[in-house]
Design a protein around this nucleic acid. Structure first.
Length: 458
RNA sequence: GUGGUUGUAGCUCAGUUGGUUAGAGCGCUUGAUUGUGGUUCAAGAGGUCGCCGGUUCGAGCCCGGUCUUCCACCCCA
């Protein structure tokens, strides 16, 4: 029986135009990744569950798509687990694989597994889809692409500087000018929690602080209280709520606030180095802003934290994020390997560029020349000309059947083909071809013996 | 996972307190147009009203469930 086709929630088909536009973005990103010395890798779309589970916190585990075992997966479950109706215990028995949730954890696994074949420091990039069992909303899908560039095996802060430049270079070339690259440091957040005496509530503290521009000072205080952070501690942290001024001024204020914390002071020193070095090198169109409230992202960051905000005129979450993680491969048994990386959110960048009308018009053109098909005999000659054009790197095609000219021209019109070539009986006889300029409506005749004269027009 | 929202022709949307045969614009097909698309004119095709169930003499409209869309929260690219 015929069933109405449909897509799973949060997934999309991409039309030819959309794919052209998406490719345009990824080509730009890829080009600059390679110019910065990153090497491409790919990893499987699914991993063993234990590789992924527990790496993204409780919330992350919930959002991981799990893959049902094959065969008689129920028969393999022991009676006790089966009867317990404990979803997570049962899931562990009937599912051993899961879809990739991000590109960083699979990369960490990759590094550990291939440690003997890799020359460190290893700079890799990876552009692949990831899956999250999230509820879709604006700019949020269950299948989406991340474009990651990470360096492992060296912990120079110059890498942070370079990654900021990389962000700037890519967004500038895409025409996404004036993007704000937010920078924070986990050590600063950690130091703050220490100073106010809430070190064990670091995550709750930072998650609440992150919402400052969204829910305001009172909202943040309320959330912190709800999470069990004492009022006295919140009072100590209050200078944070009203930080303002330039990056330098904010750093000065933080420096004095954190002078008692060794870790916090280290974080400040890192921020200061990155800030001053980036400033010395200069950015093309983006601006770097230090933001101590920035805490979003994965909780494995240990140093720098990046987030790229969409341009203000567009209502969209962040279009990129990243940071430094000193310990990631430690989970897989490889200690003391530091990594730092950034990610571009392809799907959101697409939406922002679409909204701002930043895609070049040339992407719309799928065909430069279409040859009208007048019949078997004319088609052979037309095909010769089409081959000639194709060899000259022109996107050319012959209409496959000798349908009515009206239909063929309408097809050319709908596909926005700028030039249509006509080779009918008459042209065949005097070895010529007619080129119709679809925009102007004008026609010019060329000799089949000198097709290169037409090439000059293109 | 929580709360709200949406679904009618290929697309964008009308559709009255529940009442015969569900409409429009755009698009599509055919013709005016035997070598010419866009403009015009004429004709035509296209819908189990997301799906399942319920209430009713009668449901696109009311009720329940479910899927989907979009939005907020959580979290995040």
């Amino acid at each position: 029986m015929a069933q109405k086709p449909s897509l799973p929630k949060g997934t999309r088909d991409f039309s030819p135009t959309e794919v052209f536009k998406r490719n345009y973005i990824t080509e730009v990103i890829k080009k600059h990744f390679e110019r910065y010395g990153f090497l491409p890798i790919e990893t499987p779309s699914f991993e063993n569950s234990e590789t992924l589970l527990g790496k993204y916190g409780e919330e992350g585990d919930r959002l991981i798509f799990r893959i049902l075992n094959s065969g008689d997966f129920i028969g393999a479950v022991d009676e006790q687990t089966y009867r317990s109706k404990d979803a997570s215990a049962l899931a562990g028995k009937i599912s051993e694989k899961a879809l990739r949730y991000d590109l960083t954890v699979p990369f960490a696994r990759y590094v550990v597994m291939h440690r003997n074949d890799i020359d460190f420091p290893f700079k890799r990039y990876q552009i692949q889809p990831v899956w999250r069992a999230d509820r879709p909303q604006k700019g949020r899908f269950r299948e989406f692409y991340q474009c990651d560039a990470d360096v492992v095996g060296a912990n120079s802060l110059l890498q942070e500087v370079e990654l900021i430049q990389l962000y700037d270079t890519v967004f500038t070339e895409l025409g996404l000018a004036g993007v704000q690259i937010k920078l924070n440091n986990r050590k600063v957040l950690s130091g703050l929690a220490e100073i106010i005496g809430a070190k064990d509530l670091l995550v709750d503290f930072t998650v609440a602080l992150d919402k400052l521009d969204k829910i305001g000072v009172e909202g943040v205080k309320t959330e912190m209280l709800a999470k069990g952070i004492p009022a006295s501690a919140i009072a100590l942290a209050s200078p944070l709520f009203s930080l303002h001024g330039t990056n330098i001024e904010q750093l000065e204020a933080l420096k004095s606030l954190l002078k008692e914390s060794e870790e916090g002071s280290k974080g400040i020193a890192e921020l200061e180095f990155i800030r001053s070095t980036v400033e010395a090198l200069g950015l093309k169109s983006s601006r770097l802003s230090i933001d101590v409230t920035l805490a979003r992202g994965l909780n494995y960051y240990t140093g720098a934290i990046f987030e790229v905000a969409s341009p203000e005129e567009v209502q969209m979450g962040s279009i990129g994020g990243g940071g430094r993680y000193d310990d990631l491969t430690g989970i897989f048994g490889m200690k003391d390997v530091s990594g730092v990386g950034i990610s571009f959110g392809l799907d959101r960048i697409y939406l922002v560029m679409e909204e701002l009308g930043l895609f070049p018009e040339s992407l719309e053109r799928s065909l430069d020349v279409l040859c009208v098909n007048f019949g078997p005999k004319e088609a052979i000659t037309a095909l010769k000309l089409v081959s000639f054009l194709r060899n000259a790197a022109i996107k050319a095609d012959l209409y496959p059947t000798d349908a009515k000219m009206q239909k063929q021209l309408k097809y050319a019109h709908n596909r926005q083909v700028p030039y249509v070539i006509l080779i009918g009986e008459e042209e065949l006889e005097n070895r010529s071809f007619v080129v119709k300029n679809m925009k102007a409506g004008s026609q010019t005749t060329y000799s089949l013996d000198r097709p290169e004269e037409f090439l000059q027009l293109l």
